[in-house]
């Protein structure tokens, strides 16, 4: 792996409410190299969104640090763009598709011609070249999320954070959007951190999959996905290796559901899982 672009070190987040504290994230340490596509998968309520917000600089971790390109993150970094799950709320309904994509660029003090170029290219890249003057709410859910992705792409970030971006779209659209993410990643060379609860999605998309435990969250496994770089919904998903990997992650998630971060170290391991885990670990090391 090259020099890590994003470094998450000992991140912990505790919410303090009226009279009680909730430890959402216990201790997370991992790094993402320049140009990597890493998926974070975990059971629901695993603090995935909390983690992502800490990385995005939208939430301050209680302990630990997030470092992007050598600089500590203490607010939303310039070199980062976030795609939220709730596209309908993240896009501004009072602006056209074009206006939405262009808005962050105005803050970057880019001139009009450059802004236009970026907006056009980004909309073209997500396959929405012809809807620029429409309003987001005139589009289908999948198209709206494409607009949100175009907005992030036009911003020209080094790191693209995606918080369960396809959780609210139908399966067909979802497959198309997954392929879009892979192709954008290839084309732009951007680093992507993709949070999802969908095991298949994480395996299909990622070069690496980080498996989270239940809250309070730790990383249960950092799994390298050794599927070929050229992936197609039909072939990749029906390949034996894909089935193995997804099966492995599935087991981990099942364990994670019943296991919290504080039990992680001393949990007994079933024989079946050891065997499988060993093969995976071997490939991970190589």
């Amino acid at each position: 792996m090259t020099q890590p672009l994003l470094d998450v070190a000992g991140v912990q987040k505790t919410y303090t409410g009226s009279g009680r504290t909730v430890e959402a994230v216990r201790d997370l340490t991992f790094s993402v190299g320049d140009g990597e596509l890493v998926c974070i998968v975990g059971p629901s309520g695993a603090g995935k969104t909390t983690l992502l917000k800490c990385i995005a600089g939208l939430l301050e971790p209680t302990a630990g640090t997030v470092t992007l390109a050598g600089a500590r993150v203490d607010g939303p970094p310039e070199a980062m763009a976030v795609v939220f799950q709730e596209y309908g709320r993240s896009l501004y309904p009072w602006m056209t598709v074009e206006g939405n994509v262009e808005l962050p660029l105005k803050q970057k003090k880019l001139d009009k011609a450059r802004r236009r170029e970026l907006v056009r290219d980004a909309l073209e890249a997500v396959g929405l070249a012809d809807v620029h003057s429409a309003y987001p709410w005139q589009l289908s859910g999948g198209m709206q999320q494409r607009v949100a992705i175009a907005r992030a792409v036009a911003y020209e970030p080094k790191v693209l954070l995606m918080d369960e971006p396809f959780a609210a779209v139908d399966a067909q659209t979802r497959a198309d959007l997954e392929d879009l993410i892979r192709s954008l990643w290839h084309k732009l060379g951007v680093t992507i951190l993709f949070v999802t609860h969908d095991i298949d999605e994480s395996v299909y998309l990622g070069q690496r999959v980080l498996v989270l435990s239940s809250s309070p969250t730790v990383i249960m496994e950092d799994l390298a996905i050794d599927l070929p770089d050229e992936r197609t919904q039909l072939e990749t998903r029906s390949s034996p290796r894909f089935a193995e990997l997804r099966g492995h992650v599935y087991e981990q998630i099942q364990l994670a559901k019943h296991r919290k971060g504080d039990q992680h170290q001393r949990d007994e391991v079933t024989p079946a899982r050891t065997a499988h885990g060993a093969t995976v670990a071997a490939q991970h090391d190589s």
Binding site: R89, S90, P104
Partner: peptide
Amino acid sequence: VDPVARETARSYHLGRWARVRYLIWPTAL
């Protein structure tokens, strides 16, 4: 103002004036 819309504005570095003009005012309209 919608929390997600607000976080979007924050993550894209919309300044105070831009937030009033493009987020708060249209929400309040």
